[in-house]
Structures are given as structure tokens and as C-alpha cells.
Write a protein that binds this DNA or RNA. Structure first.
Length: 851
RNA sequence: GCCCGAGUGGCGGAAUUGGUAGACGCAGGGGAUUCAAAAUCCCCCGCCGCAAGGCUUGUCGGUUCGAGUCCGACCUCGGGUACCA
């Protein structure tokens, strides 16, 4: 009897796979290709259990597709630029690059221990000059095509990280990474023209059938398309009109004032001569910068003294106010206020004593709005106070559209579609990022670097003794000749947002050593990513940027047209969670306990030090401070990679969170040991026994297992696939079939398990004389003829409730089933001598007796 | 506020198109083995009930011979998002 010893066998198989070059992706036009990609990790230095789940999910797909005969590309790299490296540099005095590459080396070993089918020959880090040099080359291409530009703009400034953030990176007024309250600053920045693609990015979402609906919706909301109209309001007296944007021109009837942004040109003009207005604008800008609680901030305004004419009722003069709630960079920076039908406008009107005029009422109710704005859903019937647009009964999106058309037809305004999506600001005032390859020259202005000078490498000799951008105070790095005139000039010190790095790495994996950003032969063959796997947290930022980037790369010829949507299918996996053990220290402070410091009894937890019961908070996100982080390296050392892989796949569906429990991991390990023992027992069986009656039953179960596991993997139902594997294993353990049949069954079991537990599968395969690696064996196919039983049990219902069952031949005629059903004891009892009202027989399915 | 998603035993969850609800696992209970324990193996395990039987997929209603699955209303939880005009 040999024992299951993953600590010995797992490294052995990993080495054997490596030496056989099993996972090196090869372009093979004779095979269909399959590109499976998990979102590449940030090299923090330590593998997280969430990584184990993410990469195991992808590995199951990769191994399965490979067994199906696909040429599989399954690469891995490192999203290696970013702030943690600079923080480490500041705290520990190491260079960000050294820190990063050390982390990569450590993490790579941990990845290898998982037995993933990764093609390490394609590995790169985004901080490799070979990678970011190509990114710089592409930046120059984008510049030439006008896909990237420079403008002065008010930006989100993170005062802790001392850098600019994109709108997408501001959450609740705070920096997504630092959590610091974001300030507004005016800086000259580089921008990608992602907003030019608003409509393309929105409409293409419809075609992404294999993306989660949720992600598509989130992106659609983020792009935020709205159809409306720009309406000019002419001033009373002379002057240029002020144009307002509205998606509800039907409420123009109720307009009583105009509000313009503090950044509106009219406001700025007035400020030059009016100190009160200047002070207000100053104040409004400051307010924006300070409080994250600006959600609750007071709506404030100041009168400009200007009045405009209502475009329809010329006798109505509307005062123009400057409002701190009007955004300059959405629409036109000016709105008309309709207090009766907008709560914000109503609050503003009440505060400054502006008139409130209803544009419509609910039918049968002509009371005017007082404190609560009348905002019925778009489908509600309303009665307008006036009939100027020809639409005067029902409001609906169609009615609003008709109003817009009417306005346009009568030269009252111009229809306009607006998007919430803004251009993507990519400048970051950081050292550890991809340098933007331009030079500032006093005579030539902003000059792109020459491609032959690429990569513009980061200097190694930098210090991090003060916050901010180390490139700014490097003694010489900035000083370069102008690529155009040759005079002394200054290199741009801003680097690119790290989201740029991750917006095209998937394309680079198709030819990581190419001298150009991509190799079109390779890219044309491997793109698109057939299955992309990652966390839902990237639903907007990374996935939207990548979709834009692919389009931009196509414009520059770096990708084929067909790669506009680079990810054919997307899967977002859930987190791995763990219970928190929470109690109170002697001084009454709340404290948390590591799992190893807690004893579990009868579903309760007790502190080991003094046996006090502590609270169990189930299924919580892992966090170091809550002491509920599980270390995958320790798990792999103790129980093996196969146990970790199997556990994270079992129980919960992959899109949901799965709770890690030590008991569950132990149980998994025991199960794998049982499977190994089963294999061992079969290997030692006397093989002289003839085929027995039990053989057919076992073969039938085996083919069902092939069918069900295959279906489970195909549909991302890995937990269900694993349940079937358990069931099949249980059958095999009890089987009295011949050695030949059992040997066949256990080898198929090994094949079916191989995507999840590849090392154990190789052990079993080899144990039974399987040829080569199980990793290279073609996926088993279920034989239909084994899947049909000649007899089946049919449930009998009485009035829809199951009362009995019937064993019938699979092709039994309906009349025979009816007769058998009526003769059934339970049915007889229910009928009590009466005839049934109705008898429903669905052959092969069910019998229902209606009384 | 608006937009999504989800509610099934003590727990995680399973259930092609409406057709035997609770697969599989965890936890729990009982037993075998053992001097004892660990390990291993066997049995039980939705709820009520001695039983016959009844009830059961968040709640209420509907469609249907038949509803976890379809329709309507509501409740709870989770996620996203917002001075966007």
C-alpha cells in the first residue's frame, strides 16, 4: 500500500511537464486555437488565496481545452508598475525595480507550486523596458493619429499619493488607492480620446454575449448616453445667448431661472468686474476641493444681474444665477431650472425665493408644487399646462423625443447626445511608471521622441527621500536635446497611468519578444482572448480602457479589425472569504484572533488562551487586520496544490464567494487520499476475473460521469462537476466490477479530475500504465449508447404531488404505463374507487393522476 | 433616489426545456475497529408526527394536470451608481 504524498509527487510532475515543454503555446494553423487569460497579478511578493482561485479557474479551462485538441495559449506576466514599489522604496530604502523583481521571483516560485499550465517562455513584466518601450512607441503612434492630446484641465489630485487620478479612479471623492480626499487642481495633462469612442464602446456592448450582463450594464451606465437638446436663451438686451442642455425639454414650460457653472465663461467674465461674484466662484471651487461630504453640500448661488428671455413665452424673463452645483464639463455648463419638477431646483428656488411654475399636473389634480417636486416616472400620464409641443397628454421617452424634434423643427434648439464618459487622463506624477516619450523645447514646444531613441528608460539612480515624483529632481535625466532642433530641452517627467500598461498586455502575450508592439502574424492567429477571467472590481476601469485601447491599436495597425473587442468571453469570479474570530481583550478593546489561536467545538469558537467563547463572523473578506487571511503557500506545503485547487473549485459556483475553512481543506485532502488509495487497490486487484454483471453498471456510470463533468466544465459549473466526480468515485469504490472495467473507470476518473487535480491525475494515470502524460491524453467522450437505461423509474403524482413510482421499460407504450399507474396501490388509495378526472402521461418523464 | 442581482435544510450549494426538491460536500448523530486515541470503514441526517400522514424553495396572489423554475405585487439582503441637468 503506497501513500498519497503530494509534497513529493507534485514537484516531480511539475518538473516533468516543464522538461517536456507541455505548455509552450505553438501557433498551429491545423488546430483551432484557444486563448485563456486570467488578469495578471500585481507582484506584491506573496501569493494570495484569491490568486489561487483565479488562476485555478483559468487552468481548468486551459487543461480542458488542451485535452479537447485546441492549441492553447495560457500566458502569465506581471502588472509591475505602481505605487507600492515607491512606498517600499521610501520605507525600506530599496529601489522600486529591485523590490519589484525580487517579488516577481518569489511569486513565480509560488505560482509554479500550483501546477498551472502556464507558458513561462512568454512571461514579461510591464516594468521591463522591452515592454514599456513598445508602449512608448505606441504612444507616439497614438499621438500621430490624434488619439492622445494635451490640455489644461482641472484634475483630481490625490494629496497623499501626490498624483493625478482619472475620474474612474475617484470613489466617493477619495482616491481609489490612498483613500485620501481628492482635491481639484489645474494642470496640463495628457488625455486619451476615449470619449470619441463613447458610442462605439456603448453599442458594441450588445454584442458581448459572453460577458456578464452585470458588467455590460455597469459599463453602459458609466458611458452614460443621454439624448437631449441644447437650447439657447437670449439675454434681455444685448449679448450672446446662454445655451442650456436639457434631456427634459417638456419641462421648459416650468423654467423659472437659469443656473450656470462657476467655471462658465460668462461667470468668469463677470467675476473680473464684480468682487462678490469672484468671491463666490473662489468659494465654490474651494468647497469642491475640501469636503467629500459635498454630496450633502448646500446648493448655493449668486445672482448675476443678467436676465434671459424664455424661448417660448417671450414675456417671461428668467434671472441667471451662478450655481455651485452646475458642472462645467457636462453638457454646456448651464441649465434651466424647473423647480416644480426637480427637487434640487426646487430647493434652490425656495432658498432664493424664485418662482415655482408647474409644467404639468397629474390627471385630476391641479395643486401646485410646494415643497416636494413632482417627478413622476416617465411612463406616468400627466397633463401639461400648455400645448406648445403638440404633445400634451402622456409623457414617455417617445413623447420627450417628440418634444426634442418639435424644438428642433421650430429652431428653438439643437438635438444633442451627451455622454458622461470623459477623456482618460493618463499623466501621473510618479517615478515608477512608463515615461511619456516627449520632450519640451522652448522653441519647438512639445516634441515627440524619435522612435529610434526608445525605450526612454527610467534612471536607476534616484532617491525617494521626499514625496512626489523622483524624476523631477533627478540631476540629469530631464536634460536632453530637442529631437527636432537639437537645442537643449527638457524631458517630460510625467509617467503613464498603470492602467495603460494593463490595457494591451493581452496583445503583447501573443508575441512578447516582437520588435514592434505586436507581431501581426501572431496577433492575428491568437487574438481574441477566448476566455478572460478576473475580479468584478475591474468591471469598469480596466475592461473599458482595454476595449478603447484595442480600437486605438487597430487604428495604428497593431491589431486586426476583429480584435476591437479583445475579450470574447469574460468571467468574473467571486472572492475567497474566511470567518473572522472576534472577541474582547482584558481591557475591553475589540480584538481578532488567528484561526490557529481558536478552538472550534459544536459550531462555536473558543479562545485557546482562556477558553472564552468568541464571536464567529462568517464569510468575511480577508484582511490582515482582521487576522482572517489564509496563506496558500502554507496550505500547499501541508496538503498539496491539488487540495488547494480542488477546494477553491468545490462547493460554491465560481462567480460567487467561497468560504475557506480548514475543515473543508482537510476533508478535501482526505478525499484525494481516498482516491489515491482506490487507484492503488485497483492496481493490485487480481486481473484474471472475467467481465461481470457489475461491469455494465459501472460503464454506464462512467459515461454519465463523462457527460456531466464535461457539461459542468463547459458551463463554468465547476462545483457541480466536482460533485459528479464525488458521486462517480463513490460508485467506483463500491463497484464489484472486473479488474479491467475498474481499471478503465479509474483511468477515466483520472482524466476527468486532471483539470482540477493535475498532479494526482498523473499519479493515477501512470500507476495504471497510461501512455505519456494524462495532461496530453485526449478528453474522453461519453458514448450515447451507455447513457440510455432500458428501464427507468417514473414518478407517479396525484394532483401534482408525488405519491409513488413505477419501473417501466424505456419504450413502454403509453397505455401500458396508464394501466400500471392506475393499478398502483397509492393511486388506488387516493382514488377510493372513483375514476380519475384526467390522466397525464409524459413518456420517460412523469405520470400525473388528476382526481 | 435610480439601475442590477440574489433569497432552497444547521451551513456551502444541486436541480437541460416547467416534470421525483434537497445531488455532492461540510457540520452533526449512531455504530465497527482499537487497551485507548488518531486514522479508516459502515449507517442516519429538511420540518412536524409514535405512526399513517401532513408540510416545505423569502411573503402573498396568479397561470398550469404539474411551479424552486413562468407572470404580478411585496419584503429582506448584496452590488453598482449619482449635484449628469
Amino acid at each position: 500500500m503506497t501513500r498519497y504524498t503530494p509534497a513529493e509527487t507534485e514537484p516531480k510532475w511539475q518538473k516533468a511537464w516543464d522538461e517536456a515543454g507541455l505548455f509552450a503555446a505553438k501557433r498551429d494553423p491545423s488546430k483551432p486555437k484557444y486563448y485563456v487569460l486570467e488578469m495578471f497579478p500585481y507582484p506584491s511578493g506573496a501569493l494570495h488565496i484569491g490568486h489561487v482561485r483565479n488562476y485555478t479557474l483559468g487552468d481548468v479551462i486551459a487543461r480542458y481545452k488542451s485535452a479537447q485538441g485546441f492549441a492553447v495559449l495560457h500566458p502569465m506576466g506581471w502588472d509591475a508598475f505602481g505605487l507600492p514599489a515607491e512606498n517600499a522604496a521610501m520605507e525600506r530604502g530599496v529601489h522600486p525595480g529591485d523590490w519589484t523583481y525580487q517579488n516577481i521571483a518569489a511569486m513565480k516560485d509560488q505560482f509554479r507550486a500550483l501546477g498551472l499550465t502556464l507558458d513561462w517562455s512568454r512571461e514579461f513584466a510591464t516594468c521591463d523596458p522591452e515592454y514599456y518601450g513598445q508602449q512608448q512607441a505606441m504612444f507616439l503612434d497614438f499621438l500621430e493619429k490624434g488619439l492622445v492630446y494635451r490640455k489644461k484641465s482641472v484634475v483630481n489630485w490625490d494629496p497623499v499619493d501626490m498624483t493625478v487620478l482619472a475620474n474612474e479612479q475617484v470613489e466617493d471623492g477619495r482616491g481609489w488607492r490612498s483613500g485620501a480626499v481628492v482635491e481639484r487642481r489645474e494642470l496640463t495633462q495628457w488625455f486619451f480620446r476615449i470619449s470619441d469612442y463613447s458610442d462605439a464602446l456603448l453599442s458594441a456592448l450588445d454584442g458581448l454575449d459572453n460577458w456578464p450582463e452585470k458588467v455590460r450594464l455597469m459599463q453602459a451606465n458609466w458611458i452614460g448616453k443621454s439624448r437631449g437638446i441644447e437650447i439657447p436663451f437670449h439675454p434681455v438686451g444685448d449679448g450672446d445667448p446662454i445655451t442650456c442642455y436639457s434631456t427634459r425639454p417638456d419641462t421648459l414650460r416650468g423654467a423659472t431661472f437659469l443656473a450656470i457653472s462657476p467655471d462658465h465663461p460668462v461667470a468668469i467674465d463677470l467675476a473680473a468686474h464684480d468682487p462678490a461674484i469672484a468671491a463666490f466662484i473662489e468659494d465654490a471651487r474651494k468647497m469642491d476641493t475640501t469636503e467629500a461630504a459635498m454630496e450633502k453640500a448646500e446648493k448655493k448661488g449668486i445672482e448675476t444681474g443678467i436676465s434671459v428671455l424664455h424661448p417660448v413665452y417671450a414675456d417671461r424673463h428668467l434671472p441667471v444665477w451662478i450655481g455651485n452645483f452646475v458642472l462645467m464639463d457636462y453638457g454646456t455648463g448651464a441649465v434651466f431650472g424647473c423647480p416644480a419638477h426637480d427637487q434640487r431646483d426646487l430647493d434652490f428656488a425656495r432658498k432664493y425665493d424664485l418662482p415655482v411654475v408647474n409644467a404639468f399636473h397629474l390627471p385630476g389634480d391641479t395643486t401646485d408644487v410646494t415643497d416636494i417636486a413632482l417627478v413622476p416616472p416617465k411612463t406616468t400620464e400627466v397633463v401639461y399646462v400648455d400645448h406648445f409641443a403638440g404633445i400634451d397628454i402622456i409623457t414617455s421617452q417617445e413623447a420627450i423625443d417628440a418634444t426634442i424634434d418639435y424644438f428642433e423643427a421650430n429652431a428653438l434648439g439643437v438635438a444633442k447626445v451627451n455622454y458622461r464618459l470623459r477623456d482618460w487622463g493618463l499623466s501621473r506624477q510618479r517615478y515608477w511608471g512608463c515615461p511619456i516619450p516627449v520632450v519640451h523645447c522652448d522653441s519647438c514646444g512639445v516634441v515627440p521622441e524619435k522612435k529610434e531613441n526608445l525605450p526612454i528608460e527610467l534612471p536607476k539612480d534616484v532617491s525617494f527621500d521626499r514625496p512626489g515624483n523622483a524624476l523631477d529632481w533627478h540631476p540629469t535625466w530631464r536634460q536632453v536635446p530637442c529631437p527636432k532642433c537639437g537645442d537643449a530641452a527638457r524631458r517630460e517627467t510625467d509617467t503613464m497611468d498603470t492602467f495603460v500598461d494593463s490595457s494591451w498586455y493581452y496583445a503583447r502575450f501573443t508575441a512578447p519578444q516582437a520588435e514592434t508592439p505586436t507581431d501581426r502574424q501572431e496577433a492575428d492567429y491568437w487574438m481574441n482572448v477566448d476566455q478572460y477571467i478576473g475580479g468584478i472590481e475591474h468591471a469598469i476601469l480596466h475592461l473599458l480602457y482595454s476595449r478603447f485601447y484595442a480600437r486605438a491599436m487597430i487604428e495604428c495597425g497593431h491589431l486586426p479589425e476583429a480584435a476591437a473587442e479583445p475579450f470574447d468571453a469574460l468571467f468574473t469570479q467571486g472572492m475567497v472569504t474566511h470567518a473572522i474570530f472576534q472577541g474582547f481583550a482584558a481591557d475591553g478593546r475589540r480584538e481578532y484572533y488567528f484561526p490557529e489561536d481558536v478552538a472550534l467545538r459544536d459550531g462555536k469558537a473558543f479562545r485557546k488562551t482562556d477558553d472564552t467563547e468568541v464571536e464567529i463572523i462568517p464569510s468575511a473578506k480577508m484582511s490582515k487586520s482582521k487576522r482572517n487571511v489564509v496563506n496558500p503557500v502554507a496550505i500547499i506545503e501541508r496538503l498539496g496544490a491539488d487540495t488547494a485547487r480542488w477546494f477553491v473549485l468545490s462547493d460554491s459556483p465560481p462567480e460567487r464567494d467561497v468560504e475557506w475553512t480548514d475543515a473543508g481543506a482537510e476533508a478535501t485532502s482526505k478525499h484525494l487520499a481516498r482516491v489515491w488509495a482506490l487507484s492503488d487497490r485497483i492496481a493490485r486487484m487480481d486481473d484474471t476475473d472475467a467481465a461481470s454483471g457489475a461491469d455494465d453498471a459501472l460503464m454506464r456510470e462512467m459515461h454519465k460521469a463523462i457527460r456531466d463533468v464535461t457539461l459542468g466544465i463547459e458551463s463554468f459549473g465547476f462545483n457541480a462537476a466536482i460533485a459528479k466526480l464525488y458521486a462517480f468515485t463513490n460508485v467506483l469504490m463500491k463497484s464489484k466490477a472486473s479488474h479491467a472495467a475498474q481499471r478503465k473507470a479509474v483511468m477515466v476518473l483520472a482524466q476527468l479530475m486532471s483539470p482540477m487535480t493535475p498532479h494526482l491525475a498523473e499519479d493515477i494515470w501512470g500507476h495504471h500504465g497510461g501512455a505519456g502524460f494524462v495532461a496530453q491524453a485526449p478528453w474522453p467522450v461519453a458514448d450515447e449508447s451507455w447513457l440510455v437505461d432500458d428501464k427507468l423509474t417514473m414518478p407517479i403524482q396525484v394532483n401534482g404531488k408525488r405519491r409513488s413510482e413505477l419501473l417501466v421499460a424505456k419504450d413502454a407504450p403509453k397505455a401500458e404505463i396508464e394501466a400500471m399507474a392506475l393499478a398502483d396501490e397509492a393511486v388506488q388509495r387516493a382514488l377510493a374507487g372513483n375514476a380519475p378526472k384526467k390522466l397525464i402521461v409524459v413518456p420517460g418523464r412523469i405520470v400525473n393522476v388528476v382526481i
